[in-house]
Design a protein around this nucleic acid. Structure first.
Lengths: 157, 157
DNA sequence: CCTAAAATCATCCTAAAGTATGAGTGTTTA
DNA sequence: TAAACACTCATACTTTAGGATGATTTTAGG
């Protein structure tokens, strides 16, 4: 007995459909009787069936039609990984040397020429020469401009 | 005449439905005749109607029902666009004025004090005063340091 | 090995940046 | 309304940056 119940609860649609059919058959039999009595209720009968089965069709279609799936792309922004990659192409194009790049980096970190000189164990004049050549190559005339430009060209972070 | 054609072409569904109904009525009349001759074709008749109108219902439902939709959200990972947002907290904490921030921005873009002065229609001395106070607040002593620090604090892009 | 580029350093000079101090003028606020 | 603050400007001075030029020493590449 429990098997039947389980079947019903698992297949509600099929069960309902079955019950509907059974009810319809009863209705048919009943209408058959009525037919004998009221002979010209024929059109009413046909119409009833039409309405009923149209409804059934609609119900079936709505019940078992495949749902359309719509894919929505949700943008999840990921923090841009700020690992710096040096633009070697630009570096080569501008013909900037290793030492010059080194000076440029220290410059951008806010050091004065004297501080850079101390850091690299060279004289102040050397740093001046480096920075002068650097400015020529970057086509600027001040260290702040050099920093701005070289950051844009990804020569420094 | 062309009006009718236009109506048909514009309302294909309705027209088809109308034609279907007309055809059905003809069928009914024909079956009515057959009914007199073959008395027990009745069940076949009812069944036919049932099948036909079930189909009709299904067709109607599929045609006119709102499509069932299932929304599937897909997460698309994308690099965060690097639009700059000013760190107002730091700005307030360091007590940096509007004008000072303005000068800082122009400084970072590589302009000289004189150029900043021209840009803001004030004297060179005014810019010097602004930058001096700025350096105090940022606890630096050079414009390159000021740029470096303020970029880190997100006071400038 | 030889040369061109890179790196080093110097000197002289000018320009720009930065410090210190004082002061006038608005605007805001307790 | 007076104090506080932001903005302005000036003068005087020091420090740093930058330009021009020339020279020496490494270093890397043909």
């Amino acid at each position: 007995m429990s098997i039947i119940f389980r079947f019903i609860s698992k297949n509600t649609s099929i069960t309902l459909y079955g019950i509907s059919l059974a009810a319809l058959l009863l209705l048919l039999k009943w209408l058959e009787l009525r037919f004998i009595i009221i002979n010209h209720a024929f059109e009413i009968y046909a119409g009833s069936i039409a309405i009923l089965f149209t409804s059934l069709g609609i119900w079936l279609a709505l019940k078992f039609s495949k749902p359309k799936t719509i894919l929505i792309e949700k943008e999840v922004y990921r923090d841009k990984p700020d690992h710096f990659v040096l633009n070697k192409t630009e570096l080569y194009r501008l013909n900037i040397s290793k030492r010059e790049l080194e000076v440029l980096q220290l410059m951008a970190s806010g050091l004065s020429n004297q501080e850079i000189a101390n850091r690299l164990f060279v004289s102040l004049n050397t740093i001046k020469t480096h920075s002068s050549k650097l400015f020529e190559k970057l086509e600027v005339s001040r260290r702040t401009q050099a920093i701005e430009v070289s950051k844009r060209l990804q020569l420094i972070p």
